[in-house]
Amino acid sequence: MVQPWTEDFMVSFWIVVMGFLVVATCGLVGTYLLLRRMALVGDAISHSILFGLVVAFMVFRSGGTMVMFVAAVATGLLTVGIIEFIHRQSRVKTDAAICIAFTTLFAAGVVLLSVAEVKGPVHLDAECVLYGEIAFVPLDPAVEVLGLVLGPAPVVRMAGVLVGLLVLATVFYKELLVTSFDPALAKSLGIRVGIWHYGLMAVLSIVIVSVFEAVGAILAVAMLVVPPMFAAQLSDRLPVRFALVFLHAALSSVLGYQLSVWLNCSPAGAMVVVGALLFLLAWAVTRPRRAAFPGWMAPN
């Protein structure tokens, strides 16, 4: 059996740290998505973002962080805009509108990608969409600030996103809470619900694009959805849920990495598998308490 922690400690360390940062960041945003019953909007944006990235690459011919962030926010808002437009202007329901919006943008992205490949290679491939390159994170050049070695560039960037997110979540705690819990009440309090909605979508887009390279578009959805579900299973209070999301991030990154070494498979995939198992565990622990009827059966 391989002993990753002793043989190549730094490689393992940075992969696990990156995994923790990714799951925690996604889980924080995902908590609000779950409250707003918008888990699948995360799925939609994580797919449609391919379109924005391809366009950005074709226009700017570079993959700089700022370019990617701007492209992601633009595509994310475009996706949400299309969904709302279809829903408002026709009798097509939201679920179908979500599906139409993101698959069309994804298809357009793939077509542009194949056109771009004809003209010159673009650094975006199927593996990136599928399961990311978290295993190569430790190989990235380290970032130094004032002679202090902080760590590989993607890890530092991810940590920056997480810190930024934590600051936002703390500063705007009550606004986010009230607009998620009761939009009508928020409106009566004079809070602009629409701005918070689109703001959250913009943040979601930034989060997705920053985890895109590490874990891929679809596994990012798992990290958006599963940790908040785990937390919601165990607690009804928002601050506790955030703490549980961090716990989930720590457990799933460490155990997931261990699993990937044992099975010789993708670390990102293994982290998702461990995360799902953690949810099942939480479900098993809390099951007797939360027996409920499916929504349509609810009395009255």
């Binding site: 308490r289 939360r290 027996a291 409920a292 009827f293 609810a298 009395p299």
Partner: peptide, 9 residues
Amino acid sequence: TVAYDRRPV
């Protein structure tokens, strides 16, 4: 008897 969330309705 019908219960919802263990609470009889």
